[in-house]
Design a protein around this nucleic acid. Structure first.
Lengths: 297, 297
DNA sequence: AAATAGTGATGCAAAATTTGCACTGCTCTG
DNA sequence: CAGAGCAGTGCAAATTTTGCATCACTATTT
């Protein structure tokens, strides 16, 4: 859309912090870009930026305008997507913010299923922690978010909630492998490789440990679930994952996942949501619907 | 706003039903206008209009686009108004849809009060019946609506509700003048001049008459309250009005208003509302707030 | 203290886009 | 069947946007 170019330019400048830098990434001259901003400012009658020696910074009027610009840019996407859907062929782009656990198996599978029906739809998936995911919904940089144990839920419109059981992951050689079910205390006798404490799984385990006055002392902490998994394979450590985050090929890797007793370690909650009050583009709305159906099973 | 010109052009064409007619009112050539539409259509990839021999008509894609355009045009007004409010001086335009009864005394007084504080704010007031008022909120041609006994309340976000007592209006020479209070049956013995049946007051009176199996047979019906009032003055008829709609200068006109007993004819409800989910421009929001305060007394 | 490198703004000419005129082809109306 | 009203199009003029060179300013580095 031609008229929205100014909006995009403006947004890019805000993100770049300088007109010249923004101009570079927009493949346009800084002077042309500068003048477009000046023109907008004249239109509105207020300066959108403070001019600093190091670049530009939003004025308070600019903040208001930025908010409007973000809404516009996403709104026109929705409109285009609705219009495209009239002609039968679904097109568009779905932007997903999600917890790390979803990246391994669930989302790849779901996206693949969706794209078989609608190859015109593209996806971007960003791993975000709980805070970041909610923020990205708020500032419209994501359409939907899948968050395990979310934080505030402000502006978060819940589309689906599903209970997630925690599993212990270990090598098939591990003494505990083969048990039908475990308690957390069973695991504490072995060496643990845990996600860092800003992850939902860790919070679940922590709270159980605190309640039973046990101490959760991991030998290894990491923010990469994949790393933890490989560690558990080679070093006979135990790590944990929620059910939806279990890789499909564990057995091929000589690993196994044993569920933790839910009376011992309670279910965690996986939330699917969008920004409240927003109408999603068709593609995103339909994909969200697919996830809702899938999560209900 | 330069970029929104296309939107305004588009909207004008829709309303005019023809590119040439729209071009005329926009003081631009039909050919230039035509090409701007073609450009938009190329941008989106779909035809927005069906081309008919008599002009153009919206396609279904155009309908979606129109909806977006309307939201845009009002949204940018809100943004401008919010930005202007930063600099202290309030500017903007408030569009009000209201029932006829409000035009006589209430709204003129309220607008006058508001404009003393904020002379930069302009107003447009449109008399609408209950259906029309709600529709004008929905399609964003009004910011706020004041409706007596509204109909559906769909998409209608209620800002305030106030009870309105019904008054009988008559000449000071009338036999019933001077009574402290009346019952509907008292009035039925005299000749009535009533608003047409799509007005809220008439509905209130009708429902009472039906319940008590009385018959409401007006000698005169009109959709002009002013006409009815003058009629009542000169011909000794009785007409009715709700409290907020009573003119301030009745006594100077040798007329008087006598309240109807509320146990006989119940209160009617006056609703102040906006479209649900919408953030009003500063000027409109503040004016609405003033009305809410006023109506609470 | 001076040089340097970074920022946004501006005058001016070239490039690109938009506009208006004249005209086409179409359909419905009288 | 002629006429009026409609949208679309080729082309040249008018207007707007762009890019280059350059200015004025500031913070950092030498």
């Amino acid at each position: 859309m031609r008229h929205l170019q100014d909006y995009l330019f403006f947004k890019t400048i805000v993100e770049a912090g300088s007109i010249r830098k923004a101009a570079e990434s927009l493949t346009i001259t800084s002077t042309a870009l500068n003048r477009r901003i000046l023109a907008i400012e004249e239109d509105i009658g207020v300066e959108l930026f403070e001019r600093l020696p190091k670049g530009v910074r939003l004025s308070s009027a600019g903040e208001i305008f930025l908010h409007h610009v973000r809404e516009q840019l996403t709104d026109i996407e929705r409109v285009k997507s609705q219009i495209a859907d009239l002609s039968g062929e679904r097109r568009g782009h779905v932007r997903i913010a999600c917890s790390q656990a979803l990246l391994t198996a669930f989302l790849p599978a779901q996206i693949s299923i969706y794209r078989e029906k609608h190859p015109g739809v593209t996806f971007s998936v960003q791993k975000k922690d709980r805070k970041e995911a909610e923020e990205s919904l708020r500032n419209l940089s994501s359409d939907i978010a899948l968050v395990f144990e979310p934080e505030s839920l402000a502006d978060f419109q819940i589309l689906s909630v599903s209970k997630q059981q925690t599993y212990a992951i270990m090598s098939t050689e591990h003494p505990l492998a083969g048990r039908p079910q475990l308690k957390l205390s069973d695991c504490l006798q072995y060496t643990l490789a845990l996600p860092s404490s800003d992850y939902g799984i860790r919070r679940i385990l922590n709270s159980k440990a605190n309640r039973s006055a046990q101490s959760l002392s991991p030998a290894i902490e990491s923010d990469s679930f994949e790393f933890l998994r490989y560690l558990a394979l080679h070093k006979q450590y135990i790590t944990f994952q929620i059910s939806i985050g279990l890789p499909e090929d564990l057995s091929q890797l000589n690993m196994t996942a044993v569920p933790l007793n839910t009376k011992d370690v309670p279910y965690g909650m996986l939330y699917l949501g969008q920004r409240s009050g927003r109408t999603l583009p068709v593609a995103a709305a339909k994909f969200a619907q697919q996830l809702v159906n899938e999560l209900q099973e």
